[in-house]
């Protein structure tokens, strides 16, 4: 379970997150929507400790992410992350991209790591591309590679930071399909997304962020057809 208590985040004097309270249960799929600059992505970075926070706490399965004594590298193994810019490692083949972290972070043997990697790549539909370098993959394939890479660490949670925003429109579908598959397998997911269709169909809850505040959270039906907040309604009217 991910528990977020009164989370505040500043970039210099810019107050990006203004007291977020949010719990994400095991097995839940939460979509986070909102305009650019509303703090959605920053929230994800705070959850896995890539960004420090100024006030409040993020607790993952009982461990305070930002506490002094926390082994952040250990904790991050529970939190897979997929980025908007897919960030495949260009100097490694698809298989090596995925096998590296299990090997050097988890200490798996080379053979074992490669086996895990091959399995995860097949899982996301890249079984034919094991020996290929990322430069020879499409954006959608690279993003699926990034998903496989995160999954190879056997995380408890997956954080998706606008995983389809940088993709050509015709490649968005394959990545969403992969995310949908993960959701169906019961993965706990927090998806920052601009894909309203995905948010509506796949998530258990949808949270709307507005200027660093979580304005509204609830089941998709409620957010999409019966939003309480004026800001939510306005945002949804504009994106549709």
């Amino acid at each position: 379970m991910i528990e977020i208590h009164d989370l505040h985040k500043y970039f210099g004097t810019l107050h990006v997150l203004k007291g977020i309270d949010l719990n994400v249960e095991k097995g839940e799929v939460l979509s986070v929507i909102g305009a650019s600059g509303s703090g959605k992505s920053t929230l994800l970075y705070c959850i896995n400790g890539l960004e420090p926070v100024q006030q409040g706490r993020v607790v993952v399965d009982g461990t305070d992410v930002h506490a002094k004594g926390t082994d952040i590298n250990k904790l991050r193994q529970r939190l897979g992350m997929v980025f908007q810019q897919w960030n495949s490692f260009p100097h490694l083949t698809a298989l090596e991209n995925v096998a590296l972290a299990p090997k050097i972070v988890k200490g798996k043997s080379k053979a074992e790591a490669r086996e895990i990697a091959a399995q995860q790549l097949r899982h996301v539909g890249l079984g034919e591309k094991l020996a290929v370098y990322p430069s020879a993959l499409s954006g959608g394939q690279q993003q699926r590679l990034a998903i496989a890479r995160a999954l190879a660490m056997e995380p408890e949670y997956m954080l998706f930071d606008e995983a389809t925003s940088a993709l050509d429109p015709e490649l968005v579908g394959e990545v969403l399909e992969t995310m949908r598959m993960l959701a169906e397998e019961g993965m706990t997911m927090i998806c920052v997304t601009h894909e309203m269709g995905f948010a509506r169909d796949v998530s258990d809850r949808v949270a709307f962020f507005h200027q660093g505040v979580m304005e509204e959270i609830g089941p998709p039906e409620q957010i999409f057809s019966n939003a309480q907040s004026e800001h939510t309604r306005k945002f949804l009217a504009n994106v549709r």
Partner: peptide, 21 residues
């Protein structure tokens, strides 16, 4: 890009591992 470092760290690599690998 900085994001390479971020992606590495998000996988649980230490700063040293992320830099050297």
């Amino acid at each position: 890009p900085d994001t390479q470092l971020r992606a590495s760290r998000s996988l649980g690599m230490t700063a040293w591992q992320a830099y050297t690998r």
